[in-house]
């Protein structure tokens, strides 16, 4: 009897303990779900793409981006049927694009007769506080697929989408100037002889600046070597420097590495001057050298700024398949 009772008690304990465990587990589960839900809520609130009021778009490398809309064109096009190539162009750069020209190149009209192979948009606004996503434009090319050769099963064609436009890039940074090279006790700012940058919100970027001071007279002479390079997926053509200033004073600048007679390999371009550089296919970078005389002999910080205009080309290969 006692044994039975003991057994019963033990069984009862187990049952109670089991029930307790279940209850505890349920409570923890509820707590867990609650915590996860709170976290999701916070993350969701915090993941909005919309920038806040102080977001700087003029940083990093950004450019006009294209993508083909799904089924425009479809994977297979039947002979004798119409088709469309629709490209969505989104300007993710921080600057407006001028004269955006988009072409479809390389399709044989015998098989794919396009009604238009080129479209131009006068302007595509860049990203800004007023337009944080940048302008988006759809470029549509309509065509008709003709007949296959003899009793061929299919015909495959590669073609290129080429886009070209003009845009600009602004650079600005605070730098330290110290014309007094021999004063080691100057408690002003520290000169950085070389500074690197990650881009200004365009495919063309100022990558480095070298600061060289020459003691001269009351102040000194400052030389700034501004290195620019193409960091985008396309090709930069002609780059022109606009206004370059140190504080409020204009700098005297010229691109280095130009042929002295202004002629470049492959032909003459009358637009090329000392304020202009043409990036070649193999060399997509340049150096702008700016100089000025400093009046103050003490160290101080000021703003170095420059703006550049450039031509840009981008291309990408796509395919069409004509089937029976």
């Amino acid at each position: 009897m006692n044994w039975l009772m003991r057994r019963g008690r033990m069984r009862g304990h187990f049952v109670v303990w089991g029930l307790l465990k279940i209850n505890l587990w349920k409570m923890n589960l509820v707590r867990g779900f609650f915590l996860v839900g709170v976290l999701v809520f916070i993350a969701g609130c915090g993941s909005s793409e919309l920038p806040n009021a102080t977001h700087n778009f003029k940083e990093g490398i950004s450019e006009l981006q294209f993508q083909v809309l799904p089924n425009a064109p479809p994977d297979r096009i039947y002979q004798g049927s119409g088709f469309k190539i629709i490209l969505e162009g989104e300007n993710r750069a921080a600057y407006d694009l001028q004269q955006v020209d988009v072409k479809v190149v390389g399709l044989d009209q015998k098989y794919f007769a396009l009604s238009n192979t080129e479209q131009t948009v006068p302007q595509l606004m860049g990203r800004s506080l007023a337009n944080p996503l940048g302008d988006k434009e759809y470029f549509e090319f309509s065509g008709v697929a003709n007949q296959l050769f003899e009793n061929a099963n299919e015909y495959g064609a590669n073609y290129f989408v080429k886009a070209s436009y003009r845009s600009k890039m602004d650079f600005a940074d605070t730098i330290c100037l110290n014309p007094n090279l021999y004063d080691v006790y100057d408690s002003g700012c520290k000169v950085e002889t070389r500074k690197s940058y990650g881009g200004q919100g365009a495919p063309l970027a100022v990558t480095d600046i070298e600061e060289i001071m020459y003691p001269s007279g009351a102040g000194g002479e400052a030389e700034f070597r501004i290195h620019i390079a193409n960091r985008g997926q396309g090709r930069v053509g002609v780059v022109t420097v606009g206004k370059a200033q140190l504080g409020n004073e204009e700098l005297t600048c010229e691109f280095k590495g130009q042929p002295s007679n202004g002629l470049l390999p492959g032909g003459e371009d009358t637009r090329i001057t000392l304020k202009t550089v043409r990036f070649t296919e193999n060399v997509q970078e340049g150096v702008l050298v700016c100089k000025t005389f400093l009046k103050d002999s003490r160290s101080y910080t000021t703003t170095l700024s420059a703006d550049f205009g450039y031509e840009y080309e981008w291309k990408r290969q796509f395919s069409l398949r004509l089937v029976r």
């Binding site: 390389g106 590669n158 290129f160 470049l264 492959g266 032909g267 070649t280 193999n282 290969q317």
Partner: peptide, 19 residues
């Protein structure tokens, strides 16, 4: 006609590869 020799070479290379 492409005056830039390098640009011409790039175009020819693209055409050879694509077509």
């Amino acid at each position: 006609v492409i005056k830039d020799v390098q640009a011409e070479a790039v175009m020819i290379k693209d055409i050879e590869q694509a077509h």
